[in-house]
Simulated assay, not measured.
Amino acid sequence: MESKMPTAADVLYRVTAIIAAVADCPVDEISSESRLVEDLDLDSLQVVEIAVRTEEEFGKPIDDSLLAEQGVTVSHCAHVVQEAHAKEVRT
């Protein structure tokens, strides 16, 4: 529920932790280039859960369809979160 924009590194760290929790694997086994479906073997419900948890963590709406595409990486998820913050700052 913070209003100031978190740093890219902070967003990536927090998103990675959320993804690790959903994937039920250690954070250190996930890189920024890990793909949600192809590398971490997540299904569509888990991807939606990631979107919900990031919304709760950052207090910004996250479009889960942006996370559900083929080849989506952890860094892409972090970018989606940063865009949600930037959009609020611009409006």
Rank of each mutant, 00 (worst) to 15 (best):
V47Y: 00
E69I: 00
R53K: 15
R90Y: 00
D24Q: 15
L42R: 06
D28R: 06
A68W: 01
R53F: 05
D64W: 13
V52N: 01
S75H: 06
L67N: 09
A51H: 03
C25N: 05
V37D: 04
S44M: 10
D28K: 03
I30T: 04
H76G: 05
I62W: 06
H76C: 08
L12H: 07
K60G: 03
K4Q: 13
K60W: 02
K60N: 08
T7F: 02
E2C: 02
V74D: 02
E83I: 05
V72P: 06
V47M: 07
D10H: 09
D10R: 06
K60Q: 14
H85Y: 15
T16I: 06
A84R: 09
V52G: 00
E88F: 00
S34E: 06
Q70Y: 09
Y13G: 06
F58L: 10
K4W: 00
E88R: 14
E56L: 12
T91F: 00
L12E: 13
E29S: 10
P26R: 02
S65N: 11
T54M: 14
F58Q: 07
P61W: 05
G59Q: 08
V37K: 15
A20Q: 04
Q70M: 08
T7D: 12
D64G: 02
D24N: 14
E55S: 13
V37I: 13
I30S: 08
E33C: 05
E69C: 05
S44C: 09
E38C: 06
V15W: 01
A23Q: 09
T54P: 03
L45S: 12
E69P: 00
E57M: 11
S3H: 12
D39T: 04
E33I: 06
R14N: 14
R53A: 13
V81C: 03
V74G: 03
T7N: 12
R53N: 12
T16R: 09
D39V: 06
D10P: 03
A9E: 15
L12T: 15
R90K: 12
T16W: 02
V48P: 00
Q82C: 09
A20L: 06
E2S: 11
E33R: 12
I62A: 02
V37E: 10
V52D: 04
L45I: 14
E88S: 14
I50M: 09
A17C: 11
S44F: 01
V72R: 15
D24I: 04
D28S: 08
K4A: 13
I18W: 03
T73Y: 00
D64A: 13
E29I: 01
K60F: 01
V81T: 10
D10M: 07
A20R: 01
V74T: 13
Q46T: 00
R53G: 03
V72L: 06
E69V: 01
R90C: 08
V89R: 14
V89S: 11
V81E: 07
A78F: 03
